[in-house]
Nucleic acid binder design. Sequence first.
DNA 1: TCCCTTTCGAGAGCACTGCTCTCGTTTCGC
DNA 2: GCGAAACGAGAGCAGTGCTCTCGAAAGGGA
Lengths: 227, 227
Amino acid sequence: MPAIRTARERAREELTREIKQEARRQLASVGAQQLSLRAVARELGMASSALYRYFAGRDELLTALIIDAYDELGDVADHALAGTAGAAPRDRWCALWTAARDWARANPHEFALVYGTPVPGYAAPRDTVEPATRLPLALLAVVRDAPLRPTPPGPAPRGALPEQLAALAAALAPGLPPHVLARAVTAWIQLVGLIGFELHGHLVGSIDPAGDLFAWTAEQTADALGL
Amino acid sequence: MPAIRTARERAREELTREIKQEARRQLASVGAQQLSLRAVARELGMASSALYRYFAGRDELLTALIIDAYDELGDVADHALAGTAGAAPRDRWCALWTAARDWARANPHEFALVYGTPVPGYAAPRDTVEPATRLPLALLAVVRDAPLRPTPPGPAPRGALPEQLAALAAALAPGLPPHVLARAVTAWIQLVGLIGFELHGHLVGSIDPAGDLFAWTAEQTADALGL
DNA sequence: TCCCTTTCGAGAGCACTGCTCTCGTTTCGC
DNA sequence: GCGAAACGAGAGCAGTGCTCTCGAAAGGGA
């Protein structure tokens, strides 16, 4: 990757970025469903067919946006982690939750893109899995680095779960007790689920606004983990 | 609603049902995103424009499908409830979880329709809220009717949450302690979130298959509620 | 420097979509 | 029986993703 590149390469890179930028703008304003290749091209002053020199199709453009969204959420999480480096683990945990929710509320369409209904017939390519793991990894980092109060063991994992947890622990958090890891996983799901419920209006009319339920759930999960 | 109706009314009712049926078929096979009014009309052998005599547009047709999906999920929940009428509350709780998951796995597009990303610019009409409450109400029914072991109170609800919980309790489960109600709400979110994660592939490669995590989470939430 | 290959942008075009409007026909209620 | 309402079909509009072709521009080897 030398700085010396042909004009063509530089133009290509820049245009690719501009296309993604404009697509991102449209995503934020009208959502993934309504994202139109032609509209993107129109806004950029180019023919719609020219766009296919840069992205093989709508799906590939969406995939690029998905990766960006995952990465942005990952950045937000890492930033929250770094900003609370010396703090109490429980506070770090809650800070992470708040950061994720704030980002999702500020970027609802991006959140829906990554944690909502996948596009039909769309299988997430390999490139998306690494960025996707950044939020759960950040959550796990808090748990892994913290001295944990002992907690009641709860129900015993059965069936394939013990091995799944053992494999996960071996890869991500060696030494973490299985039941703690299981709780971390369900906490992650709870975090995402709660944000989704709030964003998609499932709590309107009952727990609305949902900010205080969110904070309560963060603390509840922290308790369950022994943070 | 007399049995005597004009031929027109009967034809209208029947056609409305047939349209919904065909739309449902397409929903199940290609998903909500790809559901096409023209394709529905084509399959039914009518002009696409004729369809607008029965549904004002794609959104209204989707709304009808949403209501149907909520109702079907509600039926499944009620059936699970009725089928375990005399059983231990904890078993009823787990049966409800299993029933919901089974339905979602059998009808992934329907699940996505109601608990996935809403159609952009689409605000759920009033008609959908009642059917939508049936699953959470079924979950709550188990908790309400059961003798609960005392559980540690956990973090105290703050801000608006106590009043929100009090209002909810007054309407749905008078006498239920606020922290139990809060846990029931988060359990509901966890149930839906976990199903969504499994269906949308967020657990592929880590906890996969997710059945045992699901069962574990059901028991975990039952524990937390004191069931 | 010339030339051949690759890359690129534009335009036309295809097969779709949701939706509207019009225009005969059928059906209903009086 | 007749007027009004409901209905089905067709044409048409504006939009979509995507493909193909064609001429222009840029790149690298001789």
